[in-house]
């Protein structure tokens, strides 16, 4: 197991691993999901803000552990599924992959840089929507609407929100 660390360290020397209190790791996604459940009732345009996704990306990227990232993503995704009309697993699978790839990507990008954070959020939003679309079509025969332009705009919006949001989350770091 230690070799695993060696491998990753070899790729990026300057890699810094952030640590968080377990309670933070638990409460932040819950708050994000609650936000998504509750706020669009009054401000429906905020329904397009995928806070759970941003949370997944953030923690996976900051902790830089693919396994942790994918499990974390799966957890958030399934919680989201439970509160949706979809069969359980749709968001779960997508977020699992997001968590995994975000953690893997963080090994190559500087996840602390606002620019790369925007790119990360942007990219993973597009990936998230595309994957969701693929799963919807292939697995349960529910073609989810996927407008390319619309997705890109929303990805930009999510990316824009991600930068200050991630900055806020930085304050919850343990050390």
């Amino acid at each position: 197991m230690s070799d695993y660390g060696d491998l990753l360290a070899g790729v990026r020397r300057r890699t810094k691993i952030s640590r968080y209190r377990p309670v933070v790791l638990f409460l932040v996604p819950v708050a994000a999901i609650l936000f998504q459940v509750y706020v669009p009732l009054f401000l429906d345009y905020l329904g397009y803000l995928e806070l759970p996704l941003l949370v997944t990306v953030y923690f996976a990227a900051m902790r830089r552990r693919p396994v942790a990232g994918l499990l974390y993503g799966a957890g958030i995704g399934l919680a989201q599924d439970a509160l949706s009309q979809n069969p359980l697993g749709m968001f779960g699978i997508v977020k699992t992959l997001v968590g995994y790839f975000a953690a893997s990507a963080s090994l190559r990008f500087d996840a602390d840089n606002p620019g790369s954070r925007f790119v990360l959020a942007f990219f993973f939003f597009v990936f998230h929507q595309a994957m969701y679309w693929v799963l919807g079509r292939a697995l349960i025969g529910t073609p989810v609407e996927l407008g390319a332009a619309r997705t890109l705009v929303l990805a930009g919006m999510n990316g824009a929100v991600a930068v200050p949001f991630f900055h806020l989350l930085d304050k919850l770091k343990e050390s």
Binding site: S2, D6, I17, F26, L71, Y72
Partner: peptide, 28 residues
Amino acid sequence: MEFEGPAPQNLLKPLPQRDGTRFAAGRI
């Protein structure tokens, strides 16, 4: 639900810094 807090941390030890240039970015 595999909702977990610190669990993944148990799976992996904290990463020590080490040299390993043979693992090029391409490999990743």
